[in-house]
Design a protein around this nucleic acid. Structure first.
Lengths: 207, 207, 207, 207
DNA sequence: AATGAATGAGGTTTCATTCAT
DNA sequence: GATGAATGAAACCTCATTCAT
């Protein structure tokens, strides 16, 4: 449905507008997006323990503005995760129509990991690392689990992926790899080997 | 309930003393050991964010005593982790004498993962997660890398492990799995499959 | 639900205007009245600690409009209370013409208590409770004292009220009752007995 | 049972002590008492909205110490009320053995009010004025209500107090009067008349 | 040497008030 | 004139660390 979520999506204003009636809200949306971006960056760089004030400063707004948009640090974190996961889910959906289900599955894993390796930032959020906010992260990643399940099932039925593994474990492998990469900065280029290991390990054995 | 928890061992020192000549120092040593045990258990169970007071209570001593022995929370964590390092190294060394270097390598990976799966402290240390204490974490991380390198090289020379991977990447796989497991608590039993995937993926291909 | 709540009355102004010559000013006045009504209702129900935003919402206007009309929370409160003062004075004056000065006095006490029983704003104003806005409260408090004095003197001269009491003490009795009632919400109906006790106690003794 | 409550009660230490084993706790108790005293004074003077820091400063301790003793502002308030009510309850109990139940009842009212008039400070607390913390105050005053009920029932059975009133209303009258007196500083001397009014109003009518 | 009470900087969150649109 | 987003001072509370006993 191409719904308007959190991030800054195309404003249909410019299409229909003769006059400029609701210009205020544009600023607010820009601020909201800025805050999300800042939170994304700062959480990634410093961990979940950063002060909200730090995020506000990075976003160029006052503390109060952060709280107007996200009444709780936890909710801000949730929103950041949500935005990130959206990407992952969308990519998975685009692969569901693929001819070869095995190829779709392996491509998905590769893409997500390689993208995450470059992105680095939010993997911590996706995984729910760092105590306290685990509940949030857990709840949210259900969506990711759903699409993963579909891809996995198809791939397993087509005989390209070992049958003794579930979506939970595949997610663990992905998330784990993303997390691991976040630690070792600057080695993103070697992610190819890791992806290869994981994919090989997931492949169904001929015998 | 005053039992020795995780990995620590009883000091036989106290058995031999009939009279009380330097009992003070013995007491102090006992306290130090108790604090380490408690820290071990509590860090493992709750993560690095526990209050020092909690550890003191578990150890059955006052906060002050904890601070006399470990002037900083970070130093206490360091001491706890130090014991892991030794375990890791010892396990690796005992495996180096193994007949089958491939088997040794795979066993090591399995052990480290299974051990760390239920241990937040170890995961934090190995992965370097949870800011602040990075220095400490780096130490153990490097140790793991060292022993891993040795085991890996042997296994690769024996032809059981694919040649296109380095110790860094193997470590990333281990760390990733540990981090991933931390979030899905209670499902540690399924870690077997994940370990299996990783090991299969690491195995050298016949062709 | 856009009904006129507590004590405010509809402005018949707006009925006469067919054309829209100075409609702006009329709108502004309507807004001011609505804000006062809302403040009245909300202050009475929730006490002085409500957020300005809450009042604005009840009034159906933006926060900014509240502030344009009443530059300070305190001034808004003052304006709300001002209406009470007038009511108090008017009621007292209408009772001064009464035949029986004793009856007038007792009726006044009853009315003030019953009216204030369900009205936190009035109680706060009369009693001077809830710091900060003391200046305001002093104003209404003094007004009450004035009218009370007149009614009391007449009643004492007519021999229906004991001579050994002053307006200050009568006010204390009223305020006390109001404050006491504020805590036992929902039992306002029993205020009748309390009023009865106070009136009986104030009555002049036959001997 | 002369139990050890909150305030500073006689330390039995000085009776039995040969050596001085538990001297530390004495300091802590002194601090706790100091904090309660400070809270008492500051709450009374400035209302419930004072910062905890202010109370800490008055008590001559750090904020943390206040929070160690009373983990919440609400709990501190509760403790202050509790200490105050204890006095009221004890006095009521001492009057229960009186010969003349009517006299006992009226004396109680007089005493409590006159004492409160001099004390001034905590009446606000007893009554639960000032929004937020009402729940606390309400729950606590049950004890007071109990003893009051007993005194009242006896007095009503002996025919000295009007039958149409309940303990709740009597409490309201007492509390109300105390609250009212708190407002008008320096007029405590006139409390006699008010007490007289209330007692007269409560007396059973001859007809 | 051991204890745990005290400390206070630092973090989250609220809300009266301002100001750009 | 109206709007409501933005602001930031100030309040509450936590917890690593110190220090008197």
């Amino acid at each position: 449905m191409n719904s308007h979520q959190d991030g800054s999506v195309a404003q249909p204003d410019s299409l229909v507008n003769a006059d400029r009636p609701k210009s205020l809200r544009v600023d607010a949306q820009r601020n909201r997006a800025r805050i999300l971006d800042a939170a994304h960056a700062v959480f990634a760089a410093e961990g979940l323990s950063v002060r909200i004030e730090e995020i506000a400063r990075h976003a160029g707004v006052g503390i109060g503005t952060v709280y107007r948009n996200f009444p709780t640090k936890e909710l801000l974190f949730e929103a950041v995760i949500h935005r990130y996961q959206q990407k992952l889910v969308e990519e998975a959906e685009s692969l569901l129509d693929f001819d070869d289900p095995g190829e779709a599955f392996f491509q998905y894993i590769s893409r997500v990991i390689e993208e995450g390796a470059a992105n680095k930032a939010l993997t911590a959020a996706v995984s729910g690392t760092e105590i306290d906010m685990k509940a949030v992260a857990t709840g949210i990643s259900d969506q990711l689990l759903d699409v993963l399940s579909k891809l996995l099932e198809c791939a397993q039925q087509s005989g390209s992926v070992r049958a003794d593994i579930g979506a939970e474990q595949v997610k663990a492998l992905i998330v784990g790899t993303l997390l691991a990469m976040e630690q070792s900065a600057g080695q993103a280029d070697r992610s190819v080997v890791i992806v290869s290991v994981i994919c090989d390990g997931l492949r169904a054995r001929p015998d």
